[in-house]
Design a protein around this nucleic acid. Structure first.
Length: 556
RNA sequence: UGGGGCGUCGUCUAAUGGUAGGACACCUGGUUUUGGUCCAGGCAGUUGGGGUUCGAGUCCCUACGCCCCAGCCA
């Protein structure tokens, strides 16, 4: 995809275009990406990141990275660090330093005092159970708290004692005084502050009261002079509250806009559930290559470009949608096809002996590094009497359309020679141990001068000059397209999501493979060195995605 | 059954009231030293019913379907 291409228009850019026309924000565009540091970012966050940072870029505006760290019980430094890494890796730059909601705790407190003075907030002694019981239901209105009509001075006094740590957790809350009968439950005197004697990863023990999301978020946006506060659909019901707070305070008032979060089939996207996969050991960790986390995708071999292109391709709307994970895979293949260096890698080696090739001879043949990119150049490939090919490239008794090697058939060894299969050697169990072939010396380089054609072209490595490696093949983590559909998603885990090949044979050049480049193993797929477990003594490659395989499709 | 949203090919997404288009997936064929890529083509859609209009995916009414909300989570 053309990287200079402007991101596609969507309903949000239409709003912004209109705002720029009317001069609503003085042609200023300032967004923010506001993750809570309570887990690792996933591909759904990537959509939001691309949206927010993408819009800022498109309109020459700004985008803040802001941690919404208002709940010390769930948040950790490990998460903020991983989030910073992930956003950087995706290639986005935020305006200034990373920001934190916790930096505004003082201001928020002052604003709360302001609200109390207006008579728009009160300290409530009800327990959480009592509040729940009095809130009413979807169809029944709530009833007012007996503490709703405390005087301003009493509220002020109690609120400052809350802050001073005079009360236990849950003993009191500060609530907005709105309307307990409101049809929108969020407006039924929502809690603004709760008491939490917990250590915060940034403010330590400075605070024992912490602001709730609805109270905090609009203030954060307001303080940062955000113009368009983009969030997901489930916050639509919260917008009246977002607006109510900012209106009461007569503060700078950004516009909240909601869009549909990303869903992928065969994938779960909830941080809570992903955390469970990690905690219960169903996967390595947050960066397991089977995880939909950004760090998982990175370790798997996804590129930032592929993720950005994917994000662009799926669009932005308000409809709940489930995107086919094949579309993500397509974005990766599309990107890698252009830039991945080609190499030879035999996953399930079976030995081929070229009977008429001289013993102990090694020749070095030219191989193109990338047919899609001439500038990638060529390399030398060792060829010898004994080579390995992939098990599934040979069939003793093949079906009609099998173009690969079988008794009596001639195929091309890519960049090397044509060979014909003459004999098959088996062990006592009937397992094939060697395939004997003869080669045609006049087909050096893989082309016959007499114009004779072969249907099959195989990848191979020299048995003399090759290296051994572990290869990890990944399949989808879940068996059904909607793992959360019925029952516990853990029961839907795919037992074959990872298959490990211990003794793959790779071309020798891979002994110095770069940990950053993603290689195409010819005819197989795209692979990257595993950033966590691979070492010089024990090379490990992860398969990012297989090549499209119309032969396999034909056999389904 | 309160409130807030949303309904366009299998999937995702476009269409100032004016030929329903693109991508993914799938299927054909061609090219090919990757059964890859690329190229050409095909399949396939406006939730239903009324209305307004010369003309409706778009406007109106109505029915139906789906999603979200009863945390001192975000």
């Amino acid at each position: 995809m053309d990287l200079k291409k402007e991101a596609q228009e969507n309903f949000i850019t239409k709003i912004i275009n209109e705002d720029n026309n009317t001069g609503k924000w003085g042609k200023r565009v300032h967004t923010r990406f506001p993750p809570e540091p309570n887990g690792y970012l996933h591909i759904g966050h990537a959509k939001s990141i691309c949206l927010n940072f993408g819009i800022a870029k498109k309109y020459n505006g700004k985008c803040n990275l802001r941690f919404d760290d208002t709940n010390p019980l769930k948040e950790e430094v490990e998460y903020v660090e991983s989030i910073i890494d992930d956003v950087k890796w995706l290639g986005f730059k935020w305006d200034g330093k990373p920001l934190y909601a916790s930096d505004y705790f003082d201001k928020m407190f002052d604003y709360a005092v302001e609200l109390i003075k207006q008579g728009n907030a009160y300290v409530c002694d009800l327990s959480s159970d009592e509040v729940r019981n009095q809130r009413g239901t979807l169809t029944k209105p709530g009833i007012e708290s007996p503490f709703r009509n405390r005087s301003v001075s009493e509220n002020l006094e109690l609120f400052s004692r809350m802050r001073a740590g005079k009360f236990q957790d849950g003993e009191k809350t500060l609530r907005a005084k709105i309307d307990v009968q409101h049809s929108n439950l969020n407006m039924r005197d929502p809690v603004m502050y709760r008491i939490l004697h917990a250590e915060h990863h940034r403010t330590g023990n400075t605070w024992c009261i912490y602001p709730m999301y609805d109270w905090a978020h609009g203030l954060e946006d307001s303080i940062e002079n955000i113009t368009h506060s983009i969030c997901t659909l489930e916050f639509e019901d919260h917008r009246p509250l977002y607006d109510w707070y900012l209106n009461c305070l007569n503060a700078y008032h950004p516009q909240q806009i909601e869009f549909a979060r990303l869903n992928l089939n065969y994938t779960i996207m909830s941080k809570r559930k992903l955390k469970r996969l990690v905690d219960e050991g169903h996967v390595d960790d947050w960066s397991d290559p089977r995880m939909p986390t950004i760090s998982g995708l990175r370790r798997r071999g996804y590129t930032p470009e592929s993720i950005k292109n994917f994000s662009d391709a799926i669009g932005v709307t308000k409809r709940d949608a489930i995107v086919d994970v094949a579309k993500l895979e397509n974005s990766l293949r599309e990107d890698l096809n252009k830039k991945a260096p080609r190499v030879m890698g035999v996953l399930e080696p079976i030995k081929v002996i070229i009977t008429n090739y001289p013993d102990n001879e090694i020749e070095y043949l030219d191989a193109k590094n990338n047919p899609e990119d001439e500038s990638a150049g060529k390399r030398k490939l060792a060829f010898s009497k004994e080579i390995f090919i992939d098990k599934n490239d040979f069939m003793e008794d093949p079906p009609k359309k099998f173009f690969r090697l079988s008794p009596g058939k001639e195929v091309r060894l890519k960049f090397a020679y044509y060979i014909v299969c003459e004999n098959v050697i088996k062990d006592g169990n009937g397992e094939i141990t060697e395939i004997h072939c003869s080669y045609d010396p006049n087909t050096k380089g893989g082309m016959s001068e007499d114009g004779r054609k072969v249907r099959g072209t195989l990848h191979w490595v020299s048995a003399q000059e090759c290296i051994k490696a572990e290869v990890r093949l990944y399949d989808r983590l879940f068996m059904s397209d909607n793992p959360e559909n019925n029952g516990d998603f853990i029961d839907d885990l795919n037992p074959e999501s990872l298959s490990v090949i211990k003794k793959a044979k790779l071309e020798a050049s891979l002994s110095t493979a770069s940990t950053k480049t993603i290689y195409q193993f010819e005819r197989t797929g795209y692979f990257i060195i595993d950033s966590k477990d691979s070492s010089v003594d024990n090379l490990i490659f992860n398969r990012a995605v297989s090549l499209r395989d119309s032969w396999a499709r034909l056999n389904r």
